[in-house]
Design a protein around this nucleic acid. Sequence first.
DNA 1: CAAAAAATCACCTGAAAGTATGACTGTAAA
DNA 2: TTTACAGTCATACTTTCAGGTGATTTTTTG
Lengths: 161, 161
Amino acid sequence: MASKAISDFYRRHRQELLYGVSLALLLFVLRWLELRFLIIDHLIEIYVGAIALMFTGLGIWLAHKLTAPRAETRIVEREVYVTAGEEFILNEPERLRLGISQRELEVLQLVAEGLSNQQIAERLFVSLNTVKTHSSRIFEKLEVRNRTQAVERARRLGLIG
Amino acid sequence: MASKAISDFYRRHRQELLYGVSLALLLFVLRWLELRFLIIDHLIEIYVGAIALMFTGLGIWLAHKLTAPRAETRIVEREVYVTAGEEFILNEPERLRLGISQRELEVLQLVAEGLSNQQIAERLFVSLNTVKTHSSRIFEKLEVRNRTQAVERARRLGLIG
DNA sequence: CAAAAAATCACCTGAAAGTATGACTGTAAA
DNA sequence: TTTACAGTCATACTTTCAGGTGATTTTTTG
């Protein structure tokens, strides 16, 4: 029972544990170096440089781990009838004609996927308000008054797949 | 000429430059600290800790800058309007499998056209509440939580054109 | 560099959508 | 006749969407 809980805990917090352990290890190395220190004095610069580099790397790795979409694989058995996926080609001239920006197009695509503004905000790392502004502009430019119409319109115009 | 190139270079690589400068600054501080060092000996642990923290943050920031905004919208120029209206054939078995009634399908179609519930109600000569009930049932059956998703889903399943 | 365009965010309001529940009616099958 | 289901409608409540306005920051461009 308990061991299961522990292994479960480990699995869930592996990253944090690793991080902690590496920090501890680092401090140990530091300690060791501190002794050496008395002898080789100039080591510190290299040492600190190494630390800096190491932690920059760690930061990058961490950021990556934290922001990367946690792709859970959920298997759902179900028959799905798919209408043969044609390639989508953006109607660029139309986009330009309507003056729709890249970012707006991105938002539009996510709207078309049925995401809520909140979800879009999370996906694009921006605030809810920003998404609202974008979508409002899109509605203006497409001359529609809600997202469903926008999607319908954009599809016809070849702006989204 | 040259100055323009330089300022241009600056603009493009501001981040990297900033990073470099901060590193240089850090090394300077290090130098300074090294002098102090002879006096206050225990400072180093705190110092290294600070460095570590700082650069972890820097790493996170860097990773974010580098990976986040890459949202990629591919642009292919070509003058193809259209999507010649193919005939739509209802995927009847799918409709039956999901237990979607005729009336619900009707509502779904109007939803897909971008009509509001109120408009649908007027179109079908029923009350707003009825439309809401229908659409709620549709959402249940399609296992979605809003109309945009419903449309997206229904399109894939061949329930609407 | 300065101007323009794009992207970002905030606050506020009203409208629409969505949830939950219950109820009433025909119609068709068990 | 009872059961089941589709369709209809209602009330009350919460959440989300959308419009309007204004402002700052970042990027692109002339």
